[in-house]
Structures are given as C-alpha cells and as structure tokens.
Nucleic acid binder design. Structure first.
Length: 553
RNA sequence: GCGCCUGUAGCUCAACGGGACAGAGCACCUGCCUUCUAAGCAGGUGGUUGGGCGUUCGAGUCGCCCCAGGCGCGCCA
C-alpha cells in the first residue's frame, strides 16, 4: 500500500513536471504521501487526492484533473483499475483486485515487516509515571502508565531503540516527611500519642506499614533513625508501585534514583558547568539560574539559602546524564502541575549545551473523577486519593487502559466511577476484543468443518475475494503500517486505536453478512486467509496498545 | 494579571503536516439469532464544531479578538 501511494505520488509529480515544461503549470507540483486519503464516501474509490486543487495553473481545476487523469491512464500503472475525476478537481482511484490482495499477502507472509522503519533509528528514552514513592499510584499515574507503555511499544515497532525509565524521587523534603510520618505511626502503635507532622502523610497505607513493622520489630523501633524510616517507607511503597505497574502490564527497563545521582556528585558537577557558562548568580544567600532569557517570568533557584537543592538542580543533572548517555529522543510524560517547569528545565539544558529539540515533554492532563456525579478530589498527602488499583480491580486492566488510550494526552478527562462500572459491559474495548474472540472461534470451527484444510495462499485464491467488505478489509489492512508510523511520529497512541476500531468495525459487518466457512471450499479458504491476515494485524495492534487479544469471551 | 491546555450530538470522546456530506461508543426508537460467539449487525432520532473576524479554491484544523472551564506562575515536588 505504501508502495502504491509512492508510485502514484511519483507519477503525479512527473506528470506535473511535464506539464510545467509544456507551460501548463507555472511551477512543478510537489506531491506528498499525506496528499492521499481513503475517501469517506467509499463509492468514489479506494484512494483519492485533492492535490491538484492547489496546482499553480490558470486552467479550471476539473479540466486540469482530467488532463492528469489521461496522462496517468497512459502510464498503465498495474495497480489501478480506474481513475475518475470529481469534486471539482479530485482524482479518485480504484485499485485492482490483485493490488488489494497484495495488502493481504503482506500481512500473511511478512507480518513482522508491516510497519515501515523510521528514517533514522533513534535511541529513545520514555520517562513516565515517576511517582514519588510516598504513596500508592493514583489514577493520574495510571493514565501515564497506559499512555507511556503504548507509546514505548509503538516507537519500538517503528524501529527505534526504546528504554522505559522511571525517575525515582527518593530524597528530599517529601521523603523526609514520609519517613517522619511512618515513625509517628509506629510510635503511636507503641503507645506514644504524638501527632503526625504538619503536612505529613495521612494515608491509611502508612498505618498498615507501621503495623507490619511493629509486628516484626516491636519496641526496638523506638531507637531507629530517621534514615531507617525513610528507607523503609519508600522502599516498601516502591514495591507496591512496581507490583501495581506489573499487573497493569508495565515493566520499566530502569528505575533511576535521584539519591544515587546526587551521591555520585552529578548535581555538583552540573552546577559547576552552569557556573562556568555564566548562567548562575548568588542572591540573598541562594543560587539562581538565569532562566529569564529563555522566556521565563523570573530566574529560578537552584540551591536554597539553607544549602539544599531545589528539585530543579538534580533534575537538570538527571537530564544531562540522559544526553551524556547518548539519547537521541527523550519523551517525558508529566502531569499538568509540572507545566511551569518546562521552560526552566529547557533553559538549564540549553545552558549545558544540550539540544532541547531532543526532549519532548508531553503534558498528560488530569482525569477528574466523579462518583455518582460528584467530583472526587485527590491529594496523596491528605490521604484522600483514588488508587489505580481500585479502577483496575473494579473495571479490569483492559477497560481502564482502553479508556486512557482512546483519548489524546491533552484531553481533560471526566471519569464517573459508577457510570463506568454500569457501562463496563458495554465498553468499546470489548468491541475490539470480541473481534479477536470471534476470529479465534472461526478457526476452531474450521478445525471441525474442514480439518487439516490447506490455508496456504496459493495461485489466485485471494482474487476470489470480491465482496465490498472484503475489498474494504484488504484496503484497510494495507494501512496498518502507516497507522503505527503516524502514531509514533505524532506520539499519539490513540491514532492506532482509532485505526483498529475502524478495521474491526468492517470485520463485524463482514461476519454478519457473509459466511466465512461455507459450502464452497475454495471460497472458504480464501475467506479464512483474509481472517487470518486480519488476526495478525489485530493481535499486533492490540499488543502495541498493551491490551489483551482474548480467544474466547 | 500573564502563560499553557481544553471547548465538537443528551453524555464521554475521535477526525492522520487544512480537503468532498464532521464520525464512533453510550443513551433513546425500530428491526435481525433452526449459518461459523447477538459483547454483534441493519436502520432511525440527534450538530450553526463556545462566539466573532480574518487567511484560503477549501477551516473543527491556521491567525487575531472575545466567552467559559482546568492547570501553572514557591528558596514545594
């Protein structure tokens, strides 16, 4: 299919060049891959291009289109059944049965080569979730996890070398507070009635953790240091997080510890470099980074007057490391609360000589939760939050992931928990999965009715597929590769999901109207081959989205 | 106040470097299981794409101005 578009593209450009030489066109006409679409009104053809509408010519467009049509016809391109002109200058193309069958052959014979490799294979690092190990994963993290994982898989399918990374914020004020909160909970259990620190973590999960500790260690805990509680709390919580992620189908290649980066002296080194570059200055006992030249409202503090780092300093060090390790594309998924941070991070990186173009920061908007129409506020510190596990337990991981993946990152989402539960049986994810189950069922049926049938694609068997849905399926199967490529290029997994929904819709229609396994054995074999090709694409696509493709439902 | 995101059917959202008549799911109405899974299919109701001006052969998409919601603008992370 991509080759068909490429051949058409070149042919049109060549004809335009001819017409330019002949004086019909004022300039040559550049034609891009994106100038071709599958017409919404399918009776018009299989492919269409409006590109002639912007041709630099004094001729009326329809006339020009006819001229192009004639020259194109004269070239007798083997995949074209017919060419027509409509809509005031559109060129519409009908593909031959064998051209369509070629799409299917690709899926059957080279299912691993459907996605065109990116022009350059990049070292990509996708950093996401990166939740502080101070509490369970929330719905917001879940959205990032679903999005980031799908993105990583898609980029990888596009031929990039992808690493998933979790930046672990395991030092600083919040971790101190967490440790102190755990200590108080423990002491409470041991009979000391002191209150939690101000701004401490009030979540019930710390009480559970404290109980476990007391059961294990008893009175001896009274002598433990702050460091003990900090480490204990954060590592226990991280274990929970990892296990939640794993059951969500998300496994990180690395957890990068901020504490370790600091300990290795990377932060100091980074600050030194910024100093050398003349980008910092001292004021009121604090060290400031000059971010205003990069469009920031004010310069930002790197080192507080008490000598401790702000978040910015280690984060700059972390990103400098990524550049040093040779990343060619870094995709960061951040919550909207970190938005204001983009400018200062990029300012610092530019100062360090790192190309900011390599860093793509995607702000993943929040999901507002409702319970029976009432808004639920989330705050980890106050102990009031809705953990991701609640959603996955009540709705299932696939439903949850689908919900997140069907929307682009910039959409603010509304999620009514009760509504979602009520509707979960009607969830559109089942539309996809049901197709998968139906396909599996077809092959089980085939084993019964036509055991051992030869399902190799030979001769002109596929040419027998002439029903509208069959043509349509073969046409759309040819688009899978570019759907994945597009999702990867734009960093938008929902584009792939939308493609799969459309593909599966045609299958459901087909299944309803045509009997796959019928009286005519050759026709049955041809149809089964079509279904087999579809199965390969559907499975692959669902895998990229990290959604299961069940064999039964 | 400044910056960013969002505004599309009753609800939740799509629409791929502008393209032909803006699409799905849910909800609602009418049909379809003695053919392979009815978690499906066919048909119907439902839209001035928040409002206005502009660019273009063509605007949901690009530009400017309003309106509304969200989030930022800490020596918090």
């Amino acid at each position: 299919m991509t080759d068909i578009v490429e051949a058409l593209r070149t042919a049109l450009e060549e004809i335009a060049a001819e017409l330019h030489r002949e004086g019909e066109l004022e300039r040559p006409l550049p034609v891009g891959e994106n100038d071709f679409v599958i017409p919404r009104e399918r009776q018009r053809g299989d492919l269409a291009t409006p590109v002639l509408l912007k041709a630099p010519s004094r001729r009326p467009r329809p006339e020009l289109a006819v001229l192009f049509g004639e020259r194109l016809r004269a070239r007798a391109l083997p995949f074209l059944q017919s060419i027509s002109v409509a809509g005031g200058g559109y060129l519409n193309f009908l593909l031959t049965p064998s051209a369509l069958a070629d799409n299917l052959r690709q899926c059957l014979n080279n299912p691993d080569q459907l996605v065109p490799p990116a022009e350059t294979r990049l070292k990509v690092r996708v950093e996401f979730v990166s939740a502080n190990p101070t509490g369970p994963l929330t719905i917001a993290h879940g959205r990032q996890a679903a999005f980031g994982e799908a993105l990583a898989r898609i980029l990888s399918a596009c031929g990039h070398e992808v690493k998933r990374e979790y930046y672990l914020n395991d030092e600083g004020r919040q971790i101190d507070l967490l440790g102190e909160s755990l200590r108080v909970r423990v002491l409470n259990l041991l009979g000391d009635a002191r209150p939690l620190p101000e701004d401490g973590y009030q979540g019930e999960y710390l009480v559970d953790l404290a109980r476990g500790l007391v059961a294990e260690r008893g009175e001896s805990l009274k002598l433990e240091t702050g460091e003990f509680f900090r480490d204990r709390a954060s590592s226990e919580i991280l274990q929970e997080i990892r296990s939640d992620l794993a059951s969500f189908g998300v496994i990180f290649d690395s957890y990068r510890s901020q504490k370790e980066i600091t300990a290795r002296g990377e932060v100091g080194e980074t600050l030194e470099r910024l100093k050398k570059a003349g980008l910092v200055y001292e004021s009121e006992g604090a060290l400031f980074l000059k971010t205003m030249p990069y469009g920031d409202d004010k310069d930002r503090v790197l080192v507080k007057s008490d000598g401790s780092y702000t978040y910015l300093a280690p984060d700059l060090a972390y990103h400098r490391l990524k550049y040093a390790e040779g990343d060619q594309l870094m995709v960061n998924l951040w919550g909207p609360d970190h938005f204001g941070y983009i400018t200062r991070l990029q300012a610092g990186l530019a100062g360090l000589g790192c190309d900011p173009q390599k860093l793509k920061i995607i702000i993943v908007q929040l999901t507002t939760l409702y319970r029976d129409g009432e808004k639920v506020k989330m705050s980890t510190r106050q102990g009031e939050f809705l953990p991701l596990s609640l959603l996955t337990r009540e709705l299932g991981a696939d439903v949850t992931k689908f919900f997140f993946l069907s929307r682009k990152a910039s959409s603010h989402l509304d999620f009514d928990l009760e509504q979602a539960k009520k509707n979960s049986a009607e969830n559109p994810v089942f539309y996809l999965q049901y197709a998968s189950a139906r396909i599996a069922s077809l092959f089980r049926h085939q084993e019964e009715k036509m055991p051992g049938a030869d399902l190799s694609e030979t001769g002109d068997l596929l040419e027998r597929l002439g029903e509208p849905e069959e043509r349509e399926l073969m046409l759309r199967l040819g688009q899978y590769g570019s759907a994945v490529a597009m999702a990867g290029r734009n960093l938008e997994p929902q584009l792939l999901l939308a493609y799969l929904m459309n593909l599966v819709k045609i299958f459901h229609q087909y299944y309803q109207r045509c009997q796959i396994i019928g009286i005519d054995p050759d026709l049955s074999r041809a149809r089964l081959l079509l279904v087999r090709g579809l199965e390969k694409v559907l499975k692959q696509g669902l895998h990229l989205l990290n959604i299961r493709a069940p064999e039964r439902m």
